[in-house]
């Protein structure tokens, strides 16, 4: 279902410019978790960010929402830089527009708080409810929006299953009526049948609330299903970016090819014949620093000028 263009506009909601996030791991060693990232997210789309553990996809999400202070680079939200020094009021305004859903529905909910207070925390901080009654009504509404019921409001997180907890996390994110939600592996910890429920819910909410998503995941089939465009990360850098349809049909970077070829498909005969492609970073021409280039329309690949020429010539017209 990638490549949906119905409610996707050309308006850039988020522009990530040369974003880097380096961590010091010792006196002399530096981990370049995210290294010079550039991409845009359009209003109303779902942007999927995939890659293997340690590639920097979660760090990217966390840097965008300022859970980490970026080492360098800019994140423009509706044209305004959200990185750097900000006043409290500015931060508050920004926090209302951008929310996050976490991977682990167990550690991301405070076990000592009732569901109503977990969900209403943002409402309280931003003063979105006039009185206690309005606050409660709003939480009831949110619970029903995410497929839970109002009776759940007075309970504690441990009384819920993983899927239900993830719904609570989604309700909490929605409480402040954000425009943009970063979902960091929101379904990885859930059972298959529950994953489908949560993905269906996220898609429904996107239509109804006009949301834009950054969907971070390592499960490539689900990412393809939910995303309009996908960026593939490898060692802190984007190696390929294209519409999800295009990326799966016509992967160009050897790492993307190897990643796609490694996914087992629920199809035994296919599995008996599937050939895995190995990625060898040393096969690239080391004499030239690769750049992010547009090989065909809206399809970007990290490549050297020579690789670019080759891909460009082979590209279907």
């Amino acid at each position: 279902m990638g490549g949906r263009t119905v409610d996707m506009s050309d308006e850039k909601l988020l522009e990530i410019k040369n974003l880097s996030q380096h961590f010091k791991t010792g006196r002399k060693s530096l981990v370049r978790a995210v290294d010079g990232l550039n991409f845009d997210i359009y209003k109303g789309e779902t942007f999927g960010l995939v890659g293997e553990s340690g590639c920097g996809k979660s760090t990217t999400g966390r840097s965008i929402i300022r859970l980490y202070e970026a080492t360098s680079g800019e994140v423009l939200f509706k044209g305004e830089n959200v990185q750097g020094k900000k006043s409290k009021a500015e931060l508050k305004k920004f926090n209302r527009q951008m929310q996050m859903i976490f991977q682990d529905p167990y550690s991301s909910l405070n076990p000592r708080m009732k569901v109503i207070d977990i969900i209403a925390e943002g409402i309280d901080i931003h003063g979105l409810a006039k009185d206690k009654e309005e606050r409660r009504q709003r939480v009831y509404e949110l619970l029903e929006t995410v497929g839970l019921s109002r009776e759940h409001a007075e309970r504690y997180p441990h009384e819920f299953s993983g899927g239900q907890r993830q719904r609570i996390g989604i309700a909490r994110a929605l409480a402040v009526k954000p425009e943009f939600i970063i979902a960091d592996e929101p379904i990885s910890a859930l059972d298959v049948s529950i994953q489908a429920q949560v993905v269906n819910l996220m898609k429904k909410l996107q239509r109804e609330e006009d949301l834009t998503y950054l969907f971070i995941a390592h499960d490539l089939s689900m990412v393809k299903y939910i995303s309009d465009r996908i960026g593939v990360m490898y060692f802190g850098r984007l190696v390929e970016l294209a519409s999800s349809e295009e990326l799966y049909r016509n992967p160009l970077h050897p790492y993307t090819k190897s990643l796609l070829s490694a996914i087992p498909q629920p199809d035994p005969v296919h599995e008996r014949t599937r050939r895995r492609l190995a990625y060898k970073p040393e096969d690239h021409d080391q004499s030239e620093e690769p750049e992010f280039r547009e090989v065909t329309k809206d399809h970007y690949v990290l490549c050297t000028s020579k690789e670019f020429e080759e891909m460009h010539q082979q590209a279907p017209v």
Partner: peptide, 23 residues
């Protein structure tokens, strides 16, 4: 059927996944 349906195919076109309702 539900388990097979709740995984998207590579060419999934429908808007909704065939999710198993409930718990």
């Amino acid at each position: 059927w539900g388990l097979l349906g709740s995984m998207p195919t590579v060419d999934q076109r429908e808007e909704e996944l065939f999710a198993i309702p409930g718990t």
